[in-house]
Design a binder for these strands. Structure first.
Lengths: 254, 254
DNA sequence: CGCAAGTTTGACGCTGCTCAATCACTGTGG
DNA sequence: CCACAGTGATTGAGCAGCGTCAAACTTGCG
């Protein structure tokens, strides 16, 4: 039973000037040729980051926003005793902290995992972009709304679900989001470079307990994993465990 | 030791046309006379609600937004097994679901407590308002940012704090927000019409445990309460228990 | 090869949950 | 005015889910 996905991406259909952000925002609004061009231009300043390099730090002033082009990032916050809560994951195409357009301070940290690629956009540049491209602005606002909906679902999950159910929900959400990006194989496998430590901090559990729960999910042949590669064997069961409904991840264009 | 506040409001300083929303948004932007007038006009359609009447229901279409003028409301979400998570509280001046401007569906419920007064604003009316009054729009966006910051803090709290600390944090946050509204007496007392059931659903604890924790806080003379009236006796201790920092509730105007 | 980071396992016990009963308060109808 | 019901607060007993501590093991990497 191999865990590794056969190449999930479909490179054929991708138009010349495209990247993860463009693909994502296209789902939220009908973008014109000019919109796409402007988005592409604004993502020109790219870099690949070392693991655990913070993009944004609590309390610091920020003069630019970031877009994940490749890899995974997450927001997090510390408690004074050192406990950490992960607030949400950033997948390719996610733009973080668009709110710096209004406020230049952050109340939380953002980091990326091993060798992710991000684009840096200066705030004035972003302002010009949305001013000149109302459809892009609309799409960005929608993206933010989905992000907040995800936070509500996390509150529900962390507050009310039991440990196995929290993990099940996490896998449902992340794999659904990755599937939208074409990064889940037809066999339900995907690559997610998070450690059990991060899984723990995201769900409000301890590493030890996460480990045991994962194993029980493996024993029941729901999810298996091996070195950051996960594979969902029984989606129905997983969804049922999580009482997962993907509605909150989508925003129907009215 | 009486719990009830001596009248905390200062009716003298209030200008003729004002309400909770105007007061709140004034903290986020310098509003002109026209802005205030428009806000006042838009809040004309008021009504007082029966307890536990839902303003918004999950999955339903919505054609208007609501503003809390008096009283308390909250957002919540159910799990399929009936467990409920409260996602956040709405205090006077809070406008809920401004995002209906973009999407007309809600993924969660909103309700108000006993005899709150709300204003209903039709979406097109709100759109006209923000289009004609950029300062109001700016203030509304800021209000949303603070709301999201509160959600992040709740994720941290629910995920990482212990029971007593969750409650302490809850009291810190709510009393700080109420203080901004002038609804906390100089002796630290305030009226908050929530039951221990709601406290439990907000913190992800059970009623029984909430009760025991509250009592331990009372025994230690940190907080006391009696029929919806709370009084913070030892703010420093409470803040320390919660490791509370009010920064996330404020947005410095740059 | 040897270290560092992450995973896995075991033993133990506390925090917080469940179940269940009682008490207190408020509003209702007779 | 009181009996009664409904809602919320309080208490107790018992227990389990999850955390803590600690150690061994596995994998990646210079």
């Amino acid at each position: 039973m191999s865990i590794v996905a056969e190449r999930a991406v479909a490179p054929l259909a991708v138009p010349p000037a495209s990247n993860a952000v463009i693909e994502k925002l296209r789902k939220f609004a009908e973008l014109g040729r000019g919109d796409v061009g402007a988005l592409d231009a604004v993502c020109r300043n790219r870099r690949t980051l070392a693991a655990d390099e913070d993009l944004v730090q609590e309390g610091r002033r920020c003069y630019s926003v970031f877009v994940i082009l490749k890899g995974v990032g997450f927001r997090y916050k510390y408690l004074s005793d050192g406990r950490r809560q992960i607030l949400g994951f950033l997948l390719p195409g996610d733009m973080c902290d668009t709110h710096f357009v209004i406020s230049d301070r952050s109340d939380h940290n953002v980091t990326v995992l091993s060798g992710s690629e991000v684009a840096t956009i200066a705030i004035p540049e972003l302002k010009r972009l949305v001013a000149a491209h109302p459809k892009v602005e609309r799409a960005l606002v929608r993206a933010v709304l989905v992000e907040v909906a995800i936070m509500r679902e996390w509150l529900l999950s962390i507050g009310q679900r039991g440990a196995r159910h929290k993990l099940a929900h996490f896998f449902c959400e992340v794999s659904t989001r990755l599937r939208c990006l074409g990064e889940v194989g037809s066999d339900g496998s995907f690559f997610l470079p998070v450690t059990q430590i991060e899984l723990a901090d995201a769900t409000g559990l301890t590493v030890v307990h996460v480990n045991r729960c994962l194993q029980s999910l493996r024993r029941e042949e729901v999810v298996i994993w091996s070195r950051r590669h996960f594979k969902i064997l029984d989606w129905d069961r997983l969804q049922q465990l999580a009482s997962f409904n993907d509605a909150y991840l989508k925003l129907d264009r009215p």
